[in-house]
Each structure stands twice: as C-alpha cells, then as structure tokens.
Amino acid sequence: MKLIKTATVCLLLLVFADALFAQAKKTTVKSKSASAAPSAASMAAGKKVYSTICISCHQADGGGVPNMNPPLIKTTYVLGNKSKLISILLNGFNENVEINGNTYSNTMPSQDFLKDQEIADVLTYVRNSFGNKASAVTVAEVKKGRAAKK
C-alpha cells in the first residue's frame, strides 16, 4: 500500500514536474503520523460531498469560475491553516479573494448543515485533490471549529 502510494507520488512528480517540493518530501518521511495522512475512506466520502455540494461553484476540476468562484488548486486558503479553512466552510466567506492577481467575489454560503464527519472528509478530499497534497482534516478539528463558531 505504502509502496503504491509512494510510486504514485513519484509518477505524479515526474509527469507534472510538481513544484511543491516541501510537501512532496513530507509524504516520503517515514515517521508520518497516521492521523494526518488521508485515508482512502475519507477521500471517497469527501469526493461524494464535493460532487454534490461544492462542484456547482468550484467545478469538477477544482478550478473555480473566473472573477466569481475561487480555484481550490494549490492556494494558501486550501493548503494553509486548517482552522481557517474549517471556519470558511462553517461560516461562509464574504470577502474578495485574490489569487495570482485575479479577484474572486461571489458569496460563499455557510455549509454548516454538513455533519462534522462530512466536513472533515470533504476538506481532506480537497486538500488532496486537483494536485493538492496536505494533511487530512479530522473530525476533532471540525468540532473545535464548530465550538469556536458559537
């Protein structure tokens, strides 16, 4: 399993000349904590949520819509601070987002009707799809975000 995963990472790097050196390196570190690595189950469940809820604005390829809905590909919003990302899902986001000189201004509504598990899964999926590679989001982290919301 680990071998296959490593081989996939290797292949992706070779094919796409992926630039995220640091993150790619992270995935090869032996002593990676199991909780932060995305599980196949979480990825599958997250894909399901993405395909029913997020896809209409952020699109199938995660590339968003020019001027309106921001892309989810290798942005600090997605790959950076997890609690911020969780907060965007729970509270919605009503500020202009600037990515690579382009501004995106559509309203992101709150998705707080999703269960903690669904939010953890979909964020794990987004952080590990469309060329992204980052640690998983856990239910505990979502619970913390939900508590902070009140």
Binding site: L13, A17, F21, A24
Partner: peptide
C-alpha cells in the same frame, strides 16, 4: 535520487 531534479524543474 530524482527529487532534487524534479523539484528544481518544478520550481
């Protein structure tokens, strides 16, 4: 072995 090469090209 390939990582540095890939990373530099990528960057």
């Amino acid at each position: 072995i390939l990582l540095p090469v890939v990373a530099i090209t990528g960057l």
